[in-house]
Design a protein around this nucleic acid. Structure first.
Length: 579
DNA sequence: TGGACGGGCGCG
DNA sequence: AAAGCGCGCCCGTCCA
């Protein structure tokens, strides 16, 4: 009897760290089962991956995959039950009611337990079988049952094709997130220290402020005539500003900039330094950079729109100022790419707005809007488009949006309708079918009571404001969420492409003791619309091509037949420019 | 003492 | 210059 090749391999944990792998055929029929010890499991995975390339079904990729990576095993594809559950549970494309809608252990909070155990995934086998990390079940029976619910929900959905793309992209993202953490961003500690010293003065002793901050603080106190002022306390600072007759409502930099007073310049300088020191100073360096690698913890699906979040290390907020600290290893290159104006392009594609697509035909969509005669300046175009995406109503944005509405009717109709749906308390969905969360009970209650005949006017106003707030959220949700889907599709294609690169010889490895993919071009950073690949110099051009090809593939996959393209700004450097 | 919360600011 | 969306992190303040 010939052995049928598995399409899916469902992984589950048994007693005392044992692992069971059940292979399924395309219809979910069980083919064979392997019972393994914790020690046997990575080797089994390596062999199984090499022989069959199944789609691995993990209860939670963040719990399973780091161990494989630590053992030098990578996999091509997976299905992340935890992440996909969240999507299917809320998607408007999925039949309702249905088995996947029922409350189960798979509804566990998304980040529980992850923060406690971001490294190496040792937790999964340290815990006994009844416990769970990440809040979701890891045992085989639960995983098989949940996986069957996923397939039923997807197959029976209003659009199985789109949902399958979303499921694959989200799961690929989970693999990428684990691999990014394992790889780490090559980080030049000396350069980081140099930037800090240049901005703040040399590293001070424990409990001491850097010299240049001390100077700036003294200048502020002197200019405000308050020798003991604690500048870090906004209320105290505000009172001191008022005493000096600087009439501001807050201590934020943009408001301070409007005033002319000798205290303003040193104060802004102090704030800038304080921010750098507390967010990315020497303490951050000590805590987050180890052995020349910065390893933030990524949280796929951490944002309701489908964007990733980060937990610890502030991966989403590395200041441009520190970009030069990203430096390729000797003999390696950083291949960086970001998409020009991803969100408006996504809007043009999903709405089929041919005028907006035409405006984006060249690399700069904002310049295209100016060239089309819609607005006078690039700045107006940018502010207007952001206003359209975010729901801006005031200032320049409010003035320009009506012009966009006339010139890009299809695009504007899509976001305007998303906003109207949100204001009514309705649900909107991304292009591939991720749906917005239902309004909170308190929101609904406020809308209901505000509509009663005897509602107070203040109550009505509050309810209207809450409705508009929600409208801006749903307006942006469809675009931000679809952009996230494009970016995940880009990542998914790119990581598979890079996985096909040949390993470089031992002597040229970036991190000889690092994960297996560190021997060839590999992803080291991802931020919404931007990727950085760390590549041996000889593979840099090929990596750049892979990045471009993957972006084209993502566009075709999501928007087949669309004329909208997604141009990249791409650079190959040894050291990341500050931009 | 310790958690919740908001101001402020970095990123897209 | 921000505005209008989405985040995370640090700080000070408030309150139990």
């Amino acid at each position: 009897m010939s052995q049928q090749a598995p399409v899916w391999s469902v992984v589950g944990r048994g007693a005392r760290g044992a692992v069971t792998v059940v292979d399924l055929d395309a219809d979910g029929g069980e083919l064979q089962t392997a019972h393994l010890t914790a020690e046997q499991w990575p080797e089994h995975a390596r062999h199984h991956e090499g022989a069959h390339r199944p789609r691995w079904v993990f209860s939670d990729t963040a719990s399973w995959y780091p161990q494989l990576l630590a053992a030098g095993v990578t996999v091509s594809r997976c299905h992340d039950l935890r992440l996909i559950h969240v999507i299917l549970r809320h998607s408007q494309l999925v039949e309702d009611p249905g088995p996947v809608r029922a409350a189960t252990a798979w509804d566990a909070p998304i980040d529980q337990g992850l923060e406690a155990a971001p490294d190496q995934g040792a937790t999964l086998f340290d815990l006994d079988a009844s416990a769970s990390s990440g809040g979701v079940p890891h045992d085989l029976e639960e995983s098989l049952a949940e996986f069957a619910r996923h397939r039923a929900a997807t197959d029976g959905s209003a659009d199985p094709g789109r949902l399958r793309l979303l499921v694959a992209a989200e799961s690929a993202g989970a693999l990428v997130a684990a691999e990014l953490h394992a790889a780490g961003v090559p980080w030049d500690v000396a350069e980081h220290d140099r930037i800090l010293a240049e901005a703040l003065g040399p590293r001070p002793g424990t409990g001491q402020a850097p010299a240049r901050m001390v100077e700036a603080a003294a200048e502020v106190r002197s200019a405000l005539g308050d020798p003991t002022l604690s500048i870090d306390s906004p209320p105290k600072l505000l009172r001191a500003l008022h005493r000096a007759e600087i009439d501001v409502e807050s201590t934020s930099q943009w408001e301070l900039l409007e005033h002319d007073h000798p205290a303003i310049e040193p104060l802004l300088r102090y704030k800038k330094m304080s921010r750098l020191l507390t967010a990315n100073g020497w303490t951050w360096l000590d805590e987050w950079v180890d052995d020349g690698r910065y390893r933030p913890v990524y949280v796929p699906g951490g944002v309701v729109t489908g964007r990733w979040a980060a937990s610890g290390g502030g991966a989403l907020q590395i200041p441009r100022q520190l970009r030069p600290a990203l430096r390729a290893d000797e003999g390696w290159r950083l291949v960086s790419a970001d998409v020009s104006q991803l969100e408006p392009r996504v809007l043009a594609a999903m709405s089929g707005d041919s005028a907006m697509a035409a405006a984006g035909a060249d690399r700069d969509l904002y310049a295209g809007i100016v060239d089309a005669g819609v607005v006078e300046t690039r700045q107006e175009a940018k502010v207007g488009v952001l206003g359209a995406l975010y729901g801006g109503t005031t200032g320049d944005s409010g003035r320009v949006v009506p012009r966009l509405r006339r010139n890009f009717p299809a695009a504007m109709r899509l976001v305007d309708e998303a906003a109207a749906t949100g204001e009514r308390g309705g649900t909107v969905s991304t292009w591939l079918g991720r749906s917005s969360p239902a309004p909170e009970a308190e929101w609904t209650r406020a809308q209901t009571t505000a509509n009663l005949p005897d509602a107070a006017s203040g109550e009505q106003e509050r309810a209207r404001r809450a409705a508009r707030d929600r409208g801006r959220f749903t307006r942006n949700f469809v675009v931000q969420g679809t952009a996230a889907e494009w970016a995940l599709s880009w990542l998914a294609a790119l990581r598979l492409s890079l996985a096909g690169f040949d390993p470089v010889p031992e002597a040229e490895q970036a991190t000889p003791s690092g994960p297996v993919f560190a021997r060839r071009a590999h992803l080291v950073f991802f931020l919404h619309d931007e990727v950085i690949v760390h590549a041996p110099a000889a593979q840099a051009d090929a990596a750049a091509s892979a990045i471009l090809t993957s972006a084209e593939a993502a566009g075709r996959l999501l928007f087949p037949g669309s004329v909208v393209d997604f141009p990249l700004d791409l650079t190959i450097t040894e050291r990341s420019p500050a931009k």
